[in-house]
Nucleic acid binder design. Sequence first.
DNA 1: GCTTAGCACTCTATAGTTAAGAGTGCTAGA
DNA 2: TCTAGCACTCTTAACTATAGAGTGCTAAGC
Lengths: 345, 345
Amino acid sequence: MAGQELTERAQHLLKVLVERYIRDGAPVGSRTLSRDAKLDLSPATIRNVMADLEELGLIQAPHTSAGRVPTVRGYRLFVDNLLTINPLAEQEIDTLKAQFLRDADPQRIIASASSLLSEITSMAGVVMLPRREVVALRQIEFLPLSGNRVLVILVVNEREVQNRIIDTGRAYTSSELTQAANFINEHFAGRTLRQVRDSLLRQMQADREDMDRLMRSALEMAQKAFSADDEDDYLMAGETNLMGYAEMSDMERLRQLFEAFAKKQDILHLLDHSLSAKGMQIFIGNESGYEALDACSVVTSPYTVQDQVVGVLGVIGPTRMAYGRVIPLVDITARLLGAALNQEK
Amino acid sequence: MAGQELTERAQHLLKVLVERYIRDGAPVGSRTLSRDAKLDLSPATIRNVMADLEELGLIQAPHTSAGRVPTVRGYRLFVDNLLTINPLAEQEIDTLKAQFLRDADPQRIIASASSLLSEITSMAGVVMLPRREVVALRQIEFLPLSGNRVLVILVVNEREVQNRIIDTGRAYTSSELTQAANFINEHFAGRTLRQVRDSLLRQMQADREDMDRLMRSALEMAQKAFSADDEDDYLMAGETNLMGYAEMSDMERLRQLFEAFAKKQDILHLLDHSLSAKGMQIFIGNESGYEALDACSVVTSPYTVQDQVVGVLGVIGPTRMAYGRVIPLVDITARLLGAALNQEK
DNA sequence: GCTTAGCACTCTATAGTTAAGAGTGCTAGA
DNA sequence: TCTAGCACTCTTAACTATAGAGTGCTAAGC
C-alpha cells in the first residue's frame, strides 16, 4: 500500500503519533505507539504502518532507529482531518472576557489581546493593528505650521487620533483651514478613510469648473492627507517565550526569527495574506514561505468590527504546538477583540 | 605586593591583557602576555605580576591553567585609567553626519541614530526619546469629542505632535475651546511643557477671584493636559546582534536580557540615571545593578538641544567590547543627534 | 492476506580512557 | 628582582566500549 489513500487505521495511528509527539517532543517509536493507540496491535504491525506513513512523507525518522516525527505534510493532514478540537471551558472564556473589559482605549485593548495570547499559550502573540481603510472618520482638523506645512489631525472611531504633516502648495490662513475642515467634516464624517479618499478623488476629477477656490484647496489638502502611506503595523508580545523551546536552541535560527520580528515586513505580509483569506489560517513550518519561520507554525484569525474584517491576530510558536488548544483560543480571542473594539464605536 | 597600589608595570600588563582579551575573547596566558607586552620579561615574571593582579581582584582565571580574564573591577580600572581612545577618522564622522542629514522628521532622526549605533558597533543601539519637560510648546488646540471628553493636541518643537484625551468636568462648546486655546497659545508658546505646567499651577492658586469663568476652565483643562504621565520611552535597534556573542550563548541569560528590553522599565531606569548624571556613563557588567545586564556593558551619553540635556543614547554589548572605539562613537553620535534635532527648532 | 514473534542490525547517547596542550605555582639559582 | 625549570592541574578532543532504543526483514501462525 505505497499508494495514495490512507486506511482508517493508518490515519488513526498518525493522529496518535502526532498527539504524542506534541505532548512529549520526543520521536515516537512503534512500541510507544502500539501502547498509546489502543488498537491491540503489536509493535511489528505498527512498524509496517509507520513505514507506509513514512513513504507517503507524513512522518520521518531523524535517524535510523529513533522513533518517527511528523513532517510538515503530516502536521497538515493532522490539522485538516484528524484534529480533535479542545474547546475552551465556559469559565476560561469568562476570564478572557473580563480581561478585555478592563481597558477602554483601543490601543490598550489590542496590546492586551497580544499579551493574553502569549501568556496563555506560552508562545508569541501578535495582533495586526486595524487597517485604516475600514476606519471611520469622525472629525478632521487642520492646523497651520510654519511655511507651507499644515498639520492634519484625524479623529477616527471616536477615540483614536492620527496626525500627519503635509506640504501644501501655498500658505493658508487659519480661517481658510477651518472652513476646509468644516466642509470635510460636514460631508464625510462617518465614512471610512478609504471611502473619503475615493470620494475626494472623484469630486476633484468631476466638476472642476463650478468649484470655488476654497473648496478646491480643501479637497486638495484632504486628498493629500488621506493618501498618506498605509503604515501597517502589528503588536507582538511574548517573543521571548520562544527561546524556551528546544526547536529554537539553534542561535542562528533564533536570530533570524527575531530579526524577522524586528523588521516586521515578512510577518506583516503573512498577516496581510491571512487578512484577505478570510477565516482562520494555519501556516505550518515552511508553508509560510519565510525561511525565518521554518521551525514555526502560525495560527491566525481575522477580527471584525461591525462585520468588517479590520485586522488579524494570531499565535506564533514551534510547529510542535498544541493545535487543538491554540486554534479555539485564537478563534475566541479574535471574536472578543472584535467585540471589544466594537463597543468603542 | 598584595597591597593597594599598582606598579606602572602591572598597570601596563593589565592594559595589554584587557586589550588582548577584547580582541580575541580567549583567556590570556602568561606566554601570550609576555610576547604582547614588549617588556622583555619572561612568562615566569609575568606570572608573578598576574598573580598580584588576581589577588587585587582585577583579573581571574576561569579555572586552573586557563589564562586570565578581566573582572568587572579590571575593566573598570582599564576604562578609567588605562584606555587608549581611538578617535574616529574625519571621514567616518562625515559619513555619520551625512546619515543624520538624510531625515527631517525628528522621530526618524532618532530611529536612525539608534540603528547607526547598532550597525557600526555590531551591538545594540538605544536612544531615549527627548523628555517632555524640556520640549517647547508651539501650539495647543482643543477638539471636542463626545461627552465631556476633549482631545488636546500639542504641537511641540515645530514638527512633533502629541495627543491626549482628557475628561473635563462638563461639556464645552467649540468656541469656548478655541478661546481657551488662544489664551494658552498667547501666553505660553515657546515655553517648555514643564514651565507651562508650573506656571498654570501658580496662576490657578494665586488670583482665584479675579479670574473669569472661561479663563479658569482654560487653565483647568490645560492643567489636565499637561499633567499627563511622562511616558518615557526609548528606541532600540540591533538587539539581535547580541545573539552573536559567545557571552550570550546561555539561553536563559539571553532570554532575561530580551525580556528586559521588552519590558523597558529597567533599561529606562538606567538611561534615566545617565540622564541626571550628565556626561558619559559606562556601566560594566553588574555595575548597572540589573541582573539581566550582568554580562553586558552599557555606554551612554546624554544629548542636548539648545544646551539643554533632553535625552540619552548609548550602546549595549558584551562586557568584552572595544571601549576605545565605542566611547568616541557614542560621544560623537550624541553630538550629531543633538545638532540634528536642533535644526528642527 | 494480515498479523506477529524473533532476530540481526543500526544508530545514539553515555561514560570512561587516553593523550596533548595550555597554563599555572613554586623553587632555586643567577 | 628576575628567570629557568619542573611538577602539577585542568580542559579539550579523540577514541572506545556499552547499553538502549528502534528499525526492517523473515518466517511462522491465524
